[in-house]
Amino acid sequence: MSRIAQTFTALREQGRKAVIPYIVAGDPLADITVDLMLSLVAAGADIIELGVPFSDPMSEGPVIQRGHERALEKGVRLRTVIETVAAFRKHNATTPVLLMGYANPVEHMGYEAFADRAHEAGVDALLTVDVPPEEVAGLNSALRRVGMDNIFLIAPTTPAARMDLIASEASGFIYYVSLKGVTGAGHLDQASVAEQVSEIRTHSDLPVCVGFGIKDGPSAAAVARVADGVVIGSALVQRLADVAQEGGDAMAIRDAAAALVGEIRQHVDGVTGSA
């Protein structure tokens, strides 16, 4: 069983929901990422989503765009992100790590080479924002060969018929994008999220996690009532960038990350009454 499947099985047995923080690798400091990941885990993260910086992050709002730009300026690339995960694995063998990014760096490395190198480093899954199921055949066969999961997005605009297609290619969990827009935009509509998550469950047995629009403990708790996990991205990336901007050192950045993820953990566990 994959680390992601094990994680959701354990959470389900405990009656808990997954907390999934997103950070951009190499942001806000070039060499902070391994320590930051460890702080996130200590603060209650169940899965870590690590953004792979790209020159043209078309689905990101301004907050995460700037995170990508900062990381690229520091020389962070797909191959260095993979090395970062390998370094994290020396300290942590159990927390799943998901790489989130865009098709081209993976294409350029080559699907098979990426799968080999990422798997060897201890990467558990890949989410490529711009590779829908229609385009995923080659990539998925490489990922399956090494036992990595491919996480797919389902959007508010996804018709029911497409959900079956996505479910047939997805593994690990399904990532429901709670709003039409880029990362960090707008406010999520709780009623529509509940409706869509229950629709997705009629098409797939995979856990369903929700992201885009979760800003704090209360918005995470609202989503955790209906989903198997919550993703917190832009709010965290912004918080860390602010601390760095104000001159905060690595410890201050790690503390800020732990504080926000800790708050989310508490609210999410409050929903399920098991903390």
């Binding site: 689905s59 924002v129 389902i154 605009t157 018709p159």
Partner: peptide, 12 residues
């Protein structure tokens, strides 16, 4: 060619 876009745009 192909369609390499985010899921939100696929039905559009």
């Amino acid at each position: 060619g192909g369609r390499f876009v985010a899921e939100t745009l696929m039905s559009a």
